[in-house]
Amino acid sequence: MSEPSSLDGTVLVTGGAGYIGSHTVRALREAGRDVVVLDSLELGRREAVIDAPLVVGEISDRDLVSATCGDHGVTQLVHFAAYKSVGESMGSPEKYWRNNVAGSVELYEACMAAGVRDVVFSSSCSVYGTPPEVPVTETAPIQPESVYAESKAMVERILSWYGQTNGLNSVSLRYFNAAGASFDGRIGEDWTHSINLVPVVMKALLLGDRELAVFGDDYDTPDGTCIRDYIHVDDLADAHVKALAYLGRGGASTAVNVGTGTGSSVLDVIQASERVSGDPVPYSMEPRRDGDPIATFADPTFAEETLGWRARYDLDEIIETAYAWHRSQLDQGR
């Protein structure tokens, strides 16, 4: 008789009522996994969880985490819950140290005490800072340029040490730029607090009361604007499903870039939005912002080799689903 696998138990998803978290919860359930969500609902939306069990609370509440793990038979963890504004992190660093770093320690300690041994951590390509070359591989130097990025790098290191001292197995997924919405329009990104390019473009396109500020048109790129790797949120959710399966099969702890391998400029995003909507995006050219890398996009080779994952969707599908989602929210008065 074979030993039970961690894949047979429930996945605890912290921050599962948020943008990427809710898409991952849905992907896990479609893959046949049992899921329980822990979210404070400070930035998440209850309705985004759809019909998954939701526990409202903080990741630093050890008693609540322990009870949740015990009540639901949790064997694996996907940890999204974190603050993620670069600018805010520089103005209020203590908020990021306390929640993103100290909160993660409390979460991991409670989960390990409950017998959880597999963690997929929501990290970020920002841990690389301005990479010395693109496409970016996992061997690029870790050189964060913000408190937010440093908090992600620190938690990666904490996981590495927990692996050595406690046998905790982990995959840190270093996301590039998540964007888009579910193809059925059920869930998407709340633009209320978002400063990501795609929802900001959608605001300029749909609200009719603002211009998009494009910061810099004199970079050394084909059209002069910054280049980033935009990955559809459903592709990103799939990477979490595959990372959990990898750990459940006994895969070694690692860090993996999650991107498409294709760079798109700010003007590429604007032009795709105009193609999809049939309307012009109002924008103005502004001076460069300090700290914006010229071009950043992933080398996804290691993700395919290690997790069997690769992106399925391109920029047009990202924009099509984002546009449909945001337009539907306006129609519903949200």
Rank of each mutant, 00 (worst) to 15 (best):
M1F: 14
V86G: 08
I50E: 10
N177F: 14
A213R: 13
D223T: 05
L41Y: 00
E106P: 13
L207Q: 05
E211W: 15
R289P: 12
G261L: 09
V119I: 08
E150Y: 13
W97P: 11
C111H: 14
D209M: 12
G259P: 06
L247T: 00
T130P: 10
A113G: 05
L173A: 04
E88H: 15
Y148K: 09
Y128S: 09
V241P: 11
S160A: 15
C111Y: 11
G70I: 04
V214E: 03
S160T: 13
F80P: 07
S253M: 06
I20C: 11
V201E: 04
L54Q: 08
A295G: 06
Y246D: 08
W97I: 14
D268Q: 08
C111I: 08
A322G: 02
L41N: 00
E286L: 09
A110E: 02
M202K: 07
R210P: 09
F302L: 10
Y19W: 07
G208H: 03
L41Q: 00
C111G: 11
C125P: 12
S89D: 06
R288L: 09
V214G: 01
D316Y: 01
I319M: 02
R249I: 05
T130Q: 11
I195E: 13
I50D: 11
S66N: 07
T137E: 03
T254D: 04
A322Y: 01
A114C: 13
N196H: 15
L7A: 15
A178H: 11
T262K: 11
S6I: 03
M1N: 14
V200C: 13
G70W: 13
L64S: 15
P132K: 00
V101P: 02
L315G: 06
N196P: 15
P132V: 00
N99M: 15
A102D: 04
E109N: 05
N99T: 14
D316H: 02
G70T: 12
V233R: 00
E109K: 07
H232E: 13
V35P: 00
I158T: 10
G248I: 13
I50W: 06
A113H: 04
T321M: 09
D61K: 06
Y219D: 04
F215N: 10
G32Q: 14
V36L: 10
D234P: 11
D39S: 03
D61N: 03
T130R: 13
G208S: 06
T254W: 06
A255N: 04
V198M: 01
A272H: 02
N99A: 10
R29F: 02
E189D: 10
Y283G: 10
S146W: 00
P131D: 00
P293C: 00
A110G: 04
A311Q: 01
S146T: 00
G251Y: 01
E156A: 08
M154S: 10
M112W: 14
T225F: 01
M202Q: 08
P131R: 01
P144E: 07
V281D: 07
P287C: 03
V55F: 07
G224A: 07
G248S: 14
L168S: 10
S284F: 08
L54R: 06
V25P: 09
A179T: 07
R228S: 07
